[in-house]
């Protein structure tokens, strides 16, 4: 129990020291960076989803057109080219 209390105290001390030394000099600047990153992240993830959906529709269109498979020739035909 004493050991656990020491652990909690140690953790608290460490966290406090990190918190104090890491305080930002400008809270406004941090909020600007936070807002900018949050908005950009949301926009980019939304755009990524849209691109994913576009890709699916693209595959759908290709599937619908039903492109033929390339004619690569039989083994004998390929061999005859090298003779």
């Amino acid at each position: 129990m004493i050991f656990l209390l020491h652990l909690v105290d140690f953790r608290g001390t460490v966290l406090q020291s990190i918190r104090v030394s890491c305080l930002a000099p400008s809270v406004t600047r941090d909020w600007v960076i936070f807002s900018l990153f949050a908005v950009l992240a949301f926009c980019l993830i939304c755009l990524g989803r849209i691109k994913g959906m576009q890709e699916m529709q693209f595959y759908q269109s290709i599937h619908k057109v039903n492109f033929s498979v390339k004619q690569t020739g039989t083994r004998e035909e390929k061999d005859s080219r090298f003779r």
Binding site: A38, L40, F42, L44, L47, K51, I62, F67, S68, K70
Partner: peptide, 30 residues
């Protein structure tokens, strides 16, 4: 393997690249 025109494949590749870029950078920003 399919007889798809090169332009179509390039457009598909571009969409795929933009998707990966958006998801990666967006995730890292988040």
């Amino acid at each position: 393997r399919l007889e798809i025109p090169e332009d179509v494949l390039q457009a598909l590749e571009r969409i795929r690249s933009l998707k990966v870029i958006s998801m990666c950078v967006g995730g890292c920003l988040a």
